[in-house]
Write a protein that binds this DNA or RNA. Structure first.
Lengths: 296, 296
DNA sequence: TCAGGTTCATAGGCTTGGATTATGAAACAC
DNA sequence: GTGTTTCATAATCCAAGCCTATGAACCTGA
């Protein structure tokens, strides 16, 4: 038995696309070339990897577990390449950084400036999406690191804290003179939330230990939407402190801070433990921590 | 950059042998063929992997970390092959089982019988050596499973208990009428020990919390040697209960059991968590547990 | 200092593996 | 049934990899 990485790559492509033709195209080879390699792989293994249906290709049970391991191997091989790149000249080339949506608009300028200043040769690629997607992308090696709320509670990740900040209450400007409610009292008010998937939604919910009245149709996909909704008198909302400067100015709302201990969140940088970039990423976290602790 | 498994295998061979010629021989190819592949690997990586000295080949610092990752990949690929074998027909083909020396002579017959009875097609390969070697071999994939004393305290291993047994005191036959000493009192006597590396040596030492008088030149490499030394009046020793039937008969010695709670050991089966054989090995442990709990 | 030995790199010729295009076969859609 | 989609097979070609032979660098010992 003599497996090759080529076979694993082609197999993985078919497993992902569920289609030989498209897998071949994605792999940059002709369909027969790919078919032959996959068939050879099956022959060497002595087991079918795919159920070839007339309309679709599906993994067998065996193929399913095989795919998991094959992917891990391909990822590890990719990391070998990264290892070589890092080993000479430190951080350079592409760095794929993920950022959660409730951070990206407010921090990215400073992040880009700080990293570009320290590593001029760095080719930064940013991807903004919700935490679950970031975690998947990190696990698959599609991202090198991500800025998200700590803790990630993913054992495969290493994380470094970047900053902590409080949440503030945003209410219609007309209510500016009202006393600040206790966080626990928020469930008495109409609290507007981000849609499912945003970690900030869960954090906001956690503040209201009593639960909130669900307001279907009153969810936003971005903090600025929520603030606009508050300005229109639809309810109140929480936003992280870093968003105040940008968002509170754009609508007729009042911002109120909670007395200590105020609810808040910790943000950090996270990366796969096994990435060869780990030492460099610790340095990146250091640089970001410094840059972000300075006033904007 | 397009690494191949072939390159990694050849590189690994050179890293292990520290010698291109021998690595080539071990890999079953000519030396130039191997040299070319390694050179190509270095070119693709853009970094040297070896320091080519005139008298020896040594890994560079980069090569060192590279080798670790490369080996992990090669192991994972081997496991893919095993996965295929296991996926159809369950446990069959070769099973490489390690056993510690203080267990092997007494249990192996029953182990072989039990496994051969349940899996007739199984080709059992036994390797007897001390625990540290077993752990290395398991980690490298040179063994599929091992029978050793629990706990292994290696997080990469999964383990299943097989049996627990007491230790008994072996003393010269002339002392058969003496009262049984408390385990703590053993350091008053000349306790004969196995040589370094045997886990049973450490377990015996642990029994004598007060420490023992070191008797250089009075260590044995096997329990039967120790018992013979006891028979010759050189001191006393501890042996596990399973060894009594075989060993105590072959020398003029008396066996004394300790009152509860007697010192003892737990034996178990251990295997790499990532091996595809894991489900089968749980079954193996089950079979062994049953077979070994029955009287010999 | 020079002859001989060891060890890794390079060169030339050959074999095999992988790629391409062209074509076949099976299943569905209408 | 005719056309379409999709994977497998066939024929052909090029390049990657292997082997033998040889070179280059360095050590060793008289």
């Amino acid at each position: 038995m003599n497996l090759t990485l080529r076979q694993l790559r082609y197999f993985d492509a078919v497993a992902r696309h569920g289609h030989f033709g498209r897998a071949a195209e994605a792999s940059g080879v002709s369909q027969p070339a790919l078919s032959v390699q996959v068939k050879e792989l099956e022959t060497e293994l002595g087991a079918r990897l795919f159920e070839r249906g007339p309309r679709q290709v599906r993994l067998t049970a065996f193929g399913e577990t095989f795919a998991g391991r094959a992917r891990a191997i391909l990822r590890a091989v990719d990391e070998l390449g990264e290892l070589a790149r890092v080993s000479k000249g430190g951080l350079s080339g592409r760095l794929r950084l993920g950022v959660i949506p409730t951070v990206a608009p407010y921090l990215l300028p400073r992040v880009v400036t700080a990293l570009g200043g320290t590593w001029p040769a760095l080719d930064l690629e940013i991807r903004e999406t919700v935490t679950p997607n970031l975690l998947d992308a990190l696990a698959e090696g599609a991202l090198d690191a991500a800025i998200l709320a700590l803790p990630s509670s993913d054992r495969r990740l290493e994380e470094a804290p970047l900053l902590s900040e409080d949440f503030v209450l945003v209410r219609p400007a007309a209510e500016a003179d009202q006393p600040v409610p206790a966080p626990e009292a928020l469930h008495e008010m109409r609290l507007l939330l981000l849609e499912e998937g945003h970690c900030f939604r869960d954090q906001a919910l956690a503040v209201c230990t009593g639960g909130v009245r669900e307001r279907h149709g009153l969810e936003g996909s971005a903090l600025s939407t929520l603030v606009q909704m508050v300005g229109a008198g639809l309810g109140v909302t929480l936003i992280p402190e870093m968003a105040v400067a940008v968002e509170a100015r754009a609508a007729p709302v009042a911002v109120q801070r909670f007395p200590a201990p105020a609810p808040g969140r910790r943000l950090g940088l996270a990366w796969r433990r096994s990435t060869p970039l780990a030492p460099e990423l610790r340095h990146v976290a250091e640089v970001l921590r410094t840059a972000l602790s300075a006033p904007a």
